[in-house]
């Protein structure tokens, strides 16, 4: 299926791109949401990442597009977008609808889903982790990448990613323990 998307991109960039946004839009949005902690930023980041991806694809030749690991590549672009945004935290209008929909997201069919508040709380807690811990935890557990994939994406040794994941998880557990006690 992955190779099929690459072929579509080679065959017809714009149609392929549309398919790519449909296939990976949710995943990339969830990634940006977990990394940024709110829906408005997440939409901006994910959209920006896709627009950059499109611009890049226009410059790539067929061989390069065929060899693309689309999932990892999109995550890498989104990571760059996130890094470039860190220092410009200005107040912005929050599209209420987006926030509300994310909030409803938890209500899955199995009934074991997190409620809206819990999802937002988890995203908020993640956003308070130091950046290296946060990206390691999010790539490994929220996005379900292997340590190897996460390491290659972050450009870090696997050992570093593992220890960042452990620290991040430990910090999250401490926080929830605290909030339960209080």
């Amino acid at each position: 299926m992955k190779a099929e998307l690459n072929e579509r991109l080679v065959r017809n960039l714009d149609q392929g791109f549309e398919a790519m946004v449909r296939d990976y839009g949710q995943r990339l949005f969830a990634f940006a949401y977990a990394m940024s902690g709110n829906a408005a930023d997440a939409e901006e980041v994910a959209q920006d990442a896709f627009v950059r991806a499109h611009r890049a694809l226009r410059r790539y030749d067929s061989e390069r597009i065929r060899e693309l690991q689309v999932n990892a590549w999109l995550h890498r672009i989104a990571l760059n977008v996130l890094r470039n945004r860190v220092r410009r935290r200005q107040p912005r209008l929050v599209p209420l609808e987006a926030e509300l929909q994310v909030a409803d997201a938890g209500a899955g069919p199995e009934g074991q889903a997190l409620n809206r508040a819990a999802i937002r709380e988890l995203a908020r807690q993640l956003s308070e982790l130091p950046a290296p811990h946060r990206s390691a935890v999010v790539l490994r557990f929220v996005q379900g990448l292997s340590y190897q994939e996460a390491a290659s994406l972050l450009g870090q040794p696997e050992g570093t990613v593992k220890s960042n994941v452990h620290r991040g998880l430990a910090a999250l557990r401490r926080r929830r323990h605290l909030s339960e006690v209080i």
Binding site: R27, F29, A30, Y33, A34, E43, L122, F141, V142
Partner: peptide, 13 residues
């Protein structure tokens, strides 16, 4: 955390 990864994108995204 895994569940957070399944958060749907906003409508019209």
């Amino acid at each position: 955390l895994q569940e957070l990864g399944r958060v749907p994108a906003p409508r019209g995204f």
